[in-house]
Structures are given as C-alpha cells and as structure tokens.
Amino acid sequence: MSDEAFTQAVREYSDTVYRVCLHICRNRSDAEDLTQNVFLKLYRHADTFRDEEHLKSWLIRVAVNEGKSHMTSPWYRRASCSIDDGSLEDAGVTFPSTEQSELFLAVMALPPKYRVVVHLYYYEDYTVGEIAAMLDLKETTVQTQLMRARKQLKTLLSEADYEF
C-alpha cells in the first residue's frame, strides 16, 4: 500500500477500527495496541482493495481476528482480564448523560462475541448477512447472537425502555 493511501486510510478508518477493538477488549490501552496492529497489517498488505467498502470490511475483519488472538492468549487471561474491564475509566471515556454511560456499560457487559455483532449492526449499519460474511459466521448465528444480546440489553437497560 502506498504511503498516501495508508495515511488516508488511517484518517478515514482509525475511529472505526478503534471502536471495534474497544468492543473486543474493553480497555483503552489494549484497544490502541490492537488498532496499531491492524494498521500495521494494512501497511504490509500487498493486495489492492476493490473499493472503500472492501477496505473497511477488511479492516474490521482483521481487527476482530487480532482481538480473538489477543484474548485467547492464556497470558492475557491471567494478566489483563480483570473484573474491572469495561468500566468507563478502563475505556478512557466520559459521556455527557447518565443514559449514555449506562448504555455503554450495558454493551460492555455483554459477552465479547455479542458486543462486536451489536456494534456492527447498530453502529456500522451492516446487515445480518454482511456481518455473517465479515465474521465468517452463519446468518442464523448472527441473528441468534443479536437476539440474545437484545434480551440482555433489555434487562440491563430496563429503566430506559428502549425500542430495539
């Protein structure tokens, strides 16, 4: 990839990749490390991309794979995965409203595989089919994960009375 194209990709997609990474590992420092790894892979990536959407989905897929690799490490489980992960402080974020803080914490309380699917569906606006293709899952698996995630979120956010 050319330096110019790489710089443009960092500007355009660093937020996207960082948010996905934050959903996976729930803390800022790990999310930043993973984001850097993803873009290092992009810089070394020899193939061209068909279009911007192809590049974006490639970045998300690499981010998810990097995250899986990171989180399945036995040393990560021992060293990094504390019960405090997922707090606003760990994530390095603050929100102007209590509702948004609660929504963030509720999403972070979901199991890892649900968090990514929820983010791709509700934030990135991908369809179930697109998410399934991106994550190499069956559509029914994605649908099930979304359904279970919604159920948990409804419980966790019962006072807010959201329409899902």
Partner: peptide, 27 residues
Amino acid sequence: MNFKEEYRSTFSQIHASEALQQKMMEA
C-alpha cells in the same frame, strides 16, 4: 427511546486519539 439512535449517539463520541493516529501514520 430508540436504541439505535442512542447507541450511535453514544459511540460516536469515542475516537482514536490524535497520538494514536500519529503513531500509525509514522508506520
């Protein structure tokens, strides 16, 4: 309240830091 709208409003406030972007560009 619409969950999707609130979700997007919440997570749109999360950004990769300038320092992180700069580091990546230095790659």
